[in-house]
Simulated scan of single mutants.
Amino acid sequence: MTLQVKISDIAIWFKHVESPQLRERLRALPDEEYINLETDGVVGRWIRMKTGKDGRPTEAIRPEGSMKRVWSDWFKNRRGELVSIREVQLADDYLINVSKLFEEWDSPEDEAAFRDL
């Protein structure tokens, strides 16, 4: 089953995400935390929007970087369309997360011993 979201704003509002699992994943993101999503075959970075001044969470993510230009173009030209959406993990993000598993090897002694390898 292909998960979809409607192009309805310059941001993606959680209520427009069809998948309950992805919706909950997005809600769990802290303010200004990023997530990589593939939308209609294009991978880009999205940022959880800040909580409002009234203390209520903003239930949306906004595109960042190149994805901002892509989504803006889609919003102008494809508003109302449903596009596929799924979370993806980039190699850089994967390596950062895996490196946290081996913190016991991250010492000045190990750096000195193995830096030339």
Rank of each mutant, 00 (worst) to 15 (best):
M1P: 03
M1Y: 02
T2Y: 01
L3H: 05
L3C: 04
V5S: 01
I7T: 01
I7F: 03
I7S: 00
S8D: 14
S8G: 13
S8Q: 12
S8F: 07
I12C: 00
W13H: 11
W13P: 00
F14E: 14
H16V: 04
V17P: 00
Q21I: 13
Q21C: 07
Q21R: 12
L22D: 08
L22A: 04
E24V: 06
R25Y: 09
L26H: 06
R27K: 13
A28W: 08
L29H: 08
L29F: 11
Y34G: 02
Y34C: 10
I35T: 10
E38F: 00
E38N: 08
D40F: 07
D40L: 02
G44E: 07
G44C: 08
W46F: 10
W46Y: 05
W46H: 02
W46N: 08
W46A: 04
I47K: 10
R48Q: 03
R48V: 05
G52Q: 12
G55W: 08
G55M: 08
R56H: 11
P57H: 11
T58F: 09
T58K: 12
T58S: 13
T58V: 12
E59V: 13
R62T: 14
E64I: 07
E64H: 12
S66Q: 06
M67Q: 12
M67D: 06
R69I: 08
R69P: 00
V70C: 03
W71I: 00
S72N: 14
D73R: 14
D73F: 11
D73W: 09
W74S: 03
W74R: 14
F75K: 07
N77A: 08
N77M: 05
G80Y: 04
G80T: 02
E81V: 01
E81C: 04
L82F: 11
V83I: 15
S84L: 09
I85L: 09
R86D: 03
E87P: 03
E87H: 01
D92C: 00
Y94A: 09
Y94F: 06
L95C: 06
I96P: 00
I96Y: 10
N97F: 04
N97M: 11
S99C: 10
K100N: 13
L101G: 12
L101C: 13
F102G: 01
E104H: 15
E104N: 15
W105R: 15
W105I: 14
W105N: 15
D106M: 15
P108V: 11
E109T: 06
E111P: 01
A112P: 00
A113C: 08
F114W: 13
F114D: 04
R115S: 13
D116I: 11
L117E: 15
L117M: 08
L117A: 12
